[in-house]
Design a protein around this nucleic acid. Structure first.
Length: 426
RNA sequence: GGAGCGGUGGCUGAGUGGUCGAAAGCGCCGGUUUGCUAAAUCGGUGAACCGGGAAACUGGUUCCGCAGGUUCGAAUCCUGUCCGCUCCGCCA
């Protein structure tokens, strides 16, 4: 959520920014309603002040007549105050509804446009493999090695769910172990998170659990929802807290399951593990002071690169364009791994993304910082970044590390956890 | 799931319907003193919003889990709700 004063003082900028990001909001209406709300608020406060004054006089009333007169006066003032207050509440709700639709402001370097306008800003250390044989996709490899059971998953939970089997389970765990170990060594506190979160926490992090386009599974008759990423519980973890500035930045790596309905995704290129309703992810999350977030964003991007370099997976780094940022992000980098089995002859597929959400989430979640030397509080900045989404990472590993004979090389770094160097054929 | 108890400031914890933004302690900040540190002692110390001021600061409104209700007036009384703790039951 953007700051209301900022919106009022920069209405033109905010409107332009929203348009650029493909969100249409009537910013003028916000300004108009806010002016009305202020009037109502001031009126209510003034009436309340008068009522308080009258209340104080009652104790020292000379006689019963004067007392009764004051009581009547006080009652009338409170009634008027309540009316003004109700008007204020109505306007506030109306404004808030519009205000929450507004996306975050945008880093000046972010390219304008949609998916194809993103800037490629780097490549990983591992070159795209040159294969002198027809590479298999991860589903074919999975069949060869008995790694996935999509039919069984569908029988249990419907299309889009799956069982991992055999080495896939070990790979899945190995990826989690590796990511957690790597990040724990870089000052990130490992946490495993609740897989369910309250609706208010989802909204605070910028997810909307309602409406036909929602990506979120909700539990009927409760305020609980299955999380779509650990970003949600991690952001909510410190909601309402005032953090000591000296202790920032706080770095966490959260392990969670992720659940997504993928509403509206039908027909989008997706097969196998690429777009599923449930997967496991290790997520980086940070709370920083405002002037620390840019550096933290670069740090997270760098860590994502380290992780995929260590996995010996070729990738490119993308500076996501305005239309593709999502609401909370000020800037977003994606890592797209090369997937030899994707499309006709291999293609890039998103495996991680890291966003600097500045104070957009913190404002709604009400996470602030304070130092002894400073008066008042500031909203912190929040950042998130995928360390590893195990499903997509697994696609990239299997497809890039396959060999002509169908065996699959296990990346060096994962071997201690997988327990072997090569996945042999059945 | 059943029963009971409780949610108050950064923390612990008092609080008779008006004098309570709230005792006390701790913590924190500043001063004094002791050669330094520690100790002692004195003072200060919450947040949001609206307004005045260049600023230090200052006037007002709100906030005692949350939402309602009673009342001229609620931390205090009533209702609902959420959360926590203890006991019982069940259970990985």
């Amino acid at each position: 959520m953007l700051d209301r004063k900022f919106i009022l003082q920069n209405a033109q900028l905010v409107a332009e920014n929203s348009a650029k990001r493909g969100v249409s909001v009537d910013v003028d209406a916000i300004c108009r309603l806010e002016a009305e709300r202020m009037d109502a608020l001031k009126q209510a406060e003034e009436l309340n002040r008068q009522a308080n004054e009258v209340s104080k006089q009652i104790k020292s009333a000379k006689d019963n007549d004067e007392r009764q007169e004051l009581i009547a006066k006080g009652r009338s003032l409170r009634e008027q105050k309540d009316a003004a207050g109700a008007a204020q509440d109505r306007l506030e709700a109306e404004i808030l509804e519009l205000q929450t639709i507004l996306p975050n402001m945008t880093h000046p370097d972010v390219p304008e446009g949609g998916e194809h306008d993103a800037n490629e800003i780097g490549r990983g250390k591992t070159p795209v493999p040159e294969m002198d044989f027809q590479p298999l996709d991860h589903l074919q490899l999975g069949e060869k090695h008995d790694l996935f059971d999509f039919e069984g998953g569908a029988r249990v939970a419907g299309s889009g769910f799956y069982f991992l089997r055999n080495a896939a389970v070990r790979l899945d765990l190995a990826l989690q172990q590796f990511a957690i170990s790597h990040l724990a060594g870089k000052g990130f506190t490992p946490v495993s998170t609740p897989d369910l979160a309250l609706t208010s926490v989802l909204q605070g992090t910028g997810f909307n659990p309602r409406g036909p386009e929602t990506q979120i599974y909700s539990i009927e008759n409760t305020e609980l929802n299955l999380v779509a990423t650990a970003e949600i519980p991690l952001g909510g973890m410190l909601s309402g807290q005032i953090l000591a500035s000296e202790e920032l930045p706080l770095r966490f790596c959260g392990l969670s399951h992720c659940f997504r309905t993928e509403a509206g995704a039908a027909g989008r290129a997706s097969k196998g593990l690429y777009r599923v309703h449930q997967f496991t992810k290790v997520e980086m999350f940070a709370f920083t002071l405002p002037d620390q977030s840019t550096a933290m964003h670069e740090e997270m991007r760098e860590l994502e690169c380290e992780i995929f370099d260590a996995l010996e997976v070729p990738y490119r780094v993308i500076d996501t364009a305005t239309g593709d940022l999502g609401g909370p992000a000020y800037r977003k980098y994606d890592l797209e791994a090369w997937m030899p089995g994707r499309g006709e002859s291999g293609d890039w597929g998103e495996v991680t993304s890291t966003s600097n959400c500045t104070d957009y989430q913190a404002r709604r979640l009400n996470v602030r910082s304070k130092s002894n030397t400073q008066k008042g509080t500031d909203f912190v900045h929040t950042l998130n970044g995928t360390a590893i989404a195990t499903g997509r990472a697994m696609i990239a590993i299997l497809e890039n590390h396959q060999r002509a004979d169908g065996t699959i090389n296990v990346p060096q770094i994962l071997r201690p956890w997988v327990g072997c160097d090569v996945l042999e054929c059945e």
